[in-house]
Nucleic acid binder design. Sequence first.
DNA 1: CAGTGAGCGAGCTTCCGCTTGACTT
Length: 801
Amino acid sequence: MTKNLVIVESPAKAKTIEKFLGKDFTVRSCYGHIRDLAKGDDAIDIKNNFQPHYEISEDKKAVVSELKKLSKEAEMVWLASDEDREGEAISWHLSEALGLDAKKTKRIVFHEITKPAILRAVENPRNIDKHLVDAQQARRVLDRLVGFELSPVLWRKVKPSLSAGRVQSVAVRLIVDREREINSFNVTSAYKIVAKFNVGGKTMEGELGKRFATEAEAQAFLEKCKGADFTIKNLEVKPAEKSPAPPFTTSTLQQEASRKLGYGVTTTMSIAQKLYEHGFITYMRTDSVNLSELAITNAKETITQNYGGNYSNPRRYTTKNDSAQEAHEAIRPTYFENNEVEGTPQEKRLYDLIWKRAIASQMSKAQLERTIATIAISTLPDVLVASGEVLKFDGFLKVYLESTDEDGDEENSKMLPPLKVGENLLLNEIEATQRYTKASARYTEASLVKKLEELGIGRPSTYAPTIGTVQKRGYVIKEDRDGKERNFTVLTLAKNEISKEVKTEKYGTEKSKLFPSDIGMVVTDFLSKHFENIMDYNFTASVEEEFDKIARGQLVWNKMIAKFYSPFHSEVTKTNETAERQNAERLLGVDPVTGKNVSVRVGRYGPFAQIGENATDENPEKPRYASLRSGQLTETITLEEAIELFKLPRIVGQYEDKDIKASIGKFGPYLIHDSKFVSIPKTDDVFSIDLDRAIVLIDEKRIVEANKLVKVFPEDENLKVLNGRWGIYLAYGKDNYKLPKGSKAEDITFESAMKLVKVPSASKAANKTAPKKVAAKKTATKKTAAKKTAVKKTAAKKSAK
DNA sequence: CAGTGAGCGAGCTTCCGCTTGACTT
């Protein structure tokens, strides 16, 4: 029988807090929100002041009944959810759902998990802040209304199963706008002038402040430099300093893990979750850069011990972002003295990053000395500038330097050799190199999160899922793209001779970047046209201001919603009635061979090109169709590229008296021969692959096939042991099964194999049929039953530990 | 598990935020 029941959101947090509070307190977790709007379209009673209808979430029923039981027994219930809008709502939903008595309920908050903070919180309880709860209800209701009214418009006007929402639609728009900005970017080039001097055996580079637009101007400049004297005109030495970046928030962690470790945002978050559960780091979903008093002291000790007192510089960071709610600390190691932890290589690397970033944030600034040398040219009024940097004191750079998104070609801080004003320099050569301008970079998952955070759109707990959603809907594709080659000219003045060389460089190579799809573009244009305010980058920021007013008690939540809803809903109705179906149709021109029109359009199976018109009664001839290739957009494809698509399938030649055909299918380019498919690797081109190469690919595939079959069983021919990419595995009919680690083919008997096949096949079959069921009500009850038992099982496991 | 491109049209899809598993490739 417990005297005090404390409810927090996260189970890992519950465990730590229980230790601080002693035996009179039982600490439990509610696992986030326990109630939400009902699933269907009538969750909000619009006619009745937008009265929300809440239901206990399916996967929380077990948790809620457990908490209900414990709260009945307790003398006092302490609601300790996070100190922000969502947290306040969680406490309110708990008090409603558990039927808590106001007299034996207290609301407490703390934003760091330390003993003094918890004890202080317990001494200063308050009541649930209903205004803050109302702000959350407004947020929730608005999001539901927007999402559930806009999405069906898309089903009717674009494609079924699409979705729209306050956050995701703007995220897609960012990608679409960026893509168009890149496509319409006007690439220009200019000649950059760099002179290389020999100073005491070392090379020093000086750059001209301006660039020349044409080769002729660059040539003329070099001509004038022939035989010129170069002297140091001026030397300027300036002290400079660099400060460390603040400790990680969710967003900055995702960015740095992406740049330094190459992790996607989902990977980063799941590794961080593991580190958190092991107690190695503080909570990983946070928008705060704040560190607890204890953490700052702890960091100071570690720094002093490891690097010396002069490396320590305790700092308090404040969050600049308006939308931040700061319910937690920044992400930091729980114990700074642990500069490494046990775990998988990924966990170790992410921990290392978090440790370094947090430690660096508490270290001294780096002291630099910047030298700028101005070099006069005797034949010209222009000057060259050489700059260098010397690190006087490394400070935080000893452990950590933040990286940037720009893969800049600026060479980093070089040291200049000793120089004197008036000194004559020995010229090696002057190079005039043609450089091209670059459009803005495409977003990575992490840089999109950064942008969203800047706009105040989305929250730490939703960044990664949102990025997942827009990809799952097919609005956005994350992929690599090969760059193209282009020529650039280099003019070199050496030994009073000017020479010219044309070099090639690769540009536009993209790795794990976000590209919009045709559907993404169509949906963005459609929504922007009809729902301009919701697609506005500032929409969230402006509704957030209203939510804040509600939280301060200056605005009534359902009045705010009513004001938004009435014009919005009439726009939805109007669009449903008047807007045409969107298919991004575009006429590209006329096919020179047939004289027929070539057009592109987005159809049921994606974008495709068409030669000729649709069949009619008068003209029953069907047009020819070809799917666009990945990376091609209806918006940008040219007539030539579209015609190229119709060159497939093509006959490559004959092998063993049968045709080899090359084409592009669902899974990319392939060859088909004797009704067997062979994928064409990226290194080959479907349009030009020749017979010899095709035969090589077919033969290679045959060898792999031959090696695939390891063992068969006379008892049942459906059962096979096969050789795959990751070693041997079991196959029964069409289903594949994993073998236990270290299994050897010769040890596998029919009986032992069938055991593996039978056990998982039952659960597999259940999984496969579940989503297909149509009778919604029946499945709902069945699912409930299944989930209940699942939750109970895990709960039992936990209490057993 | 690699040809599609209309359509008589059932019933379904969908939001954002707060939490953690339980799955498969």
